[in-house]
Amino acid sequence: MQHFALEQALNYLIQTGAINLKPLDNKTIRFSLKDLPLDVNFICTNNRIFVVSDTSQHSDVNISLSAGVFFALFKGEDLTDLLRQDKIVIHGDVKIAQLLVDILQSVDIDLEEVLSQYTGDIVAHKAGKIAKNFKQAVQNSSNPIDTIKDGLSKLMITPVVSKLYKNKHH
């Protein structure tokens, strides 16, 4: 379930026109983290991205990297530099990998705004607080994925609270 928020964010950006998915149409790109149980396919099709844990089918490009490099990539680290340093392994068309990485790096979003579309303002505000604390939490945590999971678990539980709050106050 940890890829749920990422899928939501990416598709929100596609819907708002912030991402052009056409160059990646009908491409499947697999991201595998060597040191963590995170192995997902990004399926770009029908003008949307599905992020799924089913990796049994063929993918056009396989990207293999460590968790640390994964986060570095998200923070804007250059893919070519990481390739030169052998910190990332790509099987398949590097250009396609680069296009997906560009998209992932563009997920520099106002998380509150994205989540308010799905969960209401109160939860979105909480998510914003999580997002603000996220960078620091990741730096302090020995397992960044656990940090993400904890944050997402809170988001999955709190919509009920949000709805009750809204009903009481509006």
Binding site: F4, Q8, I14, Q15, R48
Partner: peptide
């Protein structure tokens, strides 16, 4: 059901 809708990636 709410989770199902959120997972659908349905668009305008």
């Amino acid at each position: 059901k709410r989770y199902t809708i959120a997972s659908s990636n349905v668009k305008t």
